[in-house]
Amino acid sequence: MTTVVAPALDSPLVIGGREFHSRLLVGTGKYATNDDMTRAIEASGAEIVTVAVRRVNLQRSNDEGILHHLDPSRYFLLANTAGCYTADDAVRYARLGRAAGFNEWVKLEVIGDPQTLLPDTTGLLDATRTLAADGFKVLAYTNDDLITALRLEDAGAACVMPLASPIGSGLGLLNPFSIRTIKSRLTVPVIVDAGVGTASDACVTMEQGVDGILMNTALAAAADPVRMATAMRLAVEAGRLAYLAGRMPRREIAVPSSPTAGMLE
């Protein structure tokens, strides 16, 4: 079902010393049904799948947990700290996620504002330092600001994840220049997280040279999540290969593709 770009054409994605063969990471939120979710994730070819940490609802049946629907031996579960507005809360959620027993990785979010869901970069840096010192592989969701990205790397982040546009907005890649700048200056992988709306957004994003894309709503809110997940898998691969291939230079004049010599008199 899932195709992966032939090894000769691309190298694996390495985060925190671990190799992955898909450059598409997906979330598990907001699907209409669990069946839609599992089929879309399968179609996406993703290996890394994000999950959130929440209280068990003791009033209802315990069927709502994602592990009833996702096989943790098949996917690399990446717990997030979505909904946390302070470094302390994010550290607490990260440790709760780790205690689930799958890995020591966290998709770190410290949100600064409920309307835009933009990150609180001060809290994000504090939480990154604390968690990195505690042995976590921190994948830090941040804005498209080079200075914050550099400081996150210094703070010990295993991966920096600038947004394409606000979470859940589907506005696509708003600032390709910033994303390219961040990618060119960081040593750790750069994965664009949030804002991708459709396949062309994913392709253009990968063409900037980033290491991967994390998306959720683009799949979950599509009329047909399985088709969109397939489109995104292809778009991420296409954009990656186009980046590696090196595009032709842009010219503002036409240049004929056929010989100008040899024309009839």
């Binding site: 979330g27 598990t28 939120g29 907001k30 699907y31 979710m37 994000t50 999950v51 959130a52 940490v53 929440r54 209280r55 068990v56 003791l58 709502e64 947990g65 994602i66 592990l67 579960l77 717990a79 997030n80 979505a82 440790r95 709760l96 996620g97 780790r98 205690a99 689930a100 979470i167 859940g168 949030a194 994390l214 998306m215 959720n216 709503t217």
Partner: peptide
């Protein structure tokens, strides 16, 4: 305090006023 070792659950007594949080993974991005 997160109870990281599940084998300790049976040895962990509860008392009135204790605060217990039970969490799990749910869908999220």
């Amino acid at each position: 305090t997160i109870l990281r070792d599940r084998t300790t659950y049976a040895a962990q007594p509860l008392a009135s006023g204790d605060t217990i949080e039970i969490v799990h993974f749910v869908g999220g991005g």
